[in-house]
């Protein structure tokens, strides 16, 4: 069994049972379980999460993409800033990016007000942060490779040659 094949399957559907993973990979369950344990222990697999369509879940959360400009000095690097920012639960994603700003931050909270307050009270005051631009997410059409469309209608005839 190739590790990359197992990862392909997990990325497609992390809820696939070890029994089915074993069947698809032509191996036994114990081998798959051992590999899963190793992937988790190595930190190669960092977690398994459901991909939710915010339109269809009850407690609608507000998401925002926040652009962050920072200044560095001799004592402070991107890593140091990131280490502080990842501590906030409201920050769901944090990436250093190329281009006009430094960090792309995914922020999630209960309301627009809560997001605004979080950015102004918690993020903006960080000494290295020089500028924030907050984009509220208005609609999600695709996430983690999954398009949020109405059920895929199989229009094929039920039996064909």
């Amino acid at each position: 069994m190739e590790r990359s094949d197992l990862l392909d399957l997990l990325r497609e559907d992390a809820r696939t049972s070890t029994a089915d993973l074993a069947r698809m990979l032509d191996t036994d369950e114990a081998t798959v379980q051992a590999e899963l344990d190793a992937l988790e222990a190595d930190g190669a697999v960092r977690g398994y999460r459901a991909v939710l369509d915010p339109d269809r879940v009850e407690d609608e959360r507000v998401e925002a993409v926040v652009e962050l400009d920072v200044t560095l000095d001799r004592e402070t690097g991107y890593e140091d800033i990131a280490r502080r920012l990842v501590q906030f639960d409201e920050i769901r994603g944090l990436r250093l990016v190329s281009g006009d700003y430094d960090f792309a931050v995914d922020v999630e909270a209960d309301s627009m007000r809560a997001v605004s307050r979080f950015v102004s009270d918690q993020v903006a005051p960080v000494p290295e942060v020089t500028k924030t631009v907050t984009h509220f997410v208005m609609q999600t059409y695709k996430e983690a490779g999954i398009a949020f469309e109405d059920g895929d209608d199989d229009d094929r005839l039920s039996v064909t040659p």
Binding site: R156, L157, S158, V159, T160, P161
Partner: peptide, 22 residues
């Protein structure tokens, strides 16, 4: 020869079909 079986399958709407050649 598939025709007859196709008609049987089409009568139901809860069919999980492993009979599709595409």
């Amino acid at each position: 020869g598939i025709r007859k079986f196709f008609e049987l399958a089409e009568e139901r709407d809860d069919v999980v079909s492993l009979g599709v050649g595409e």
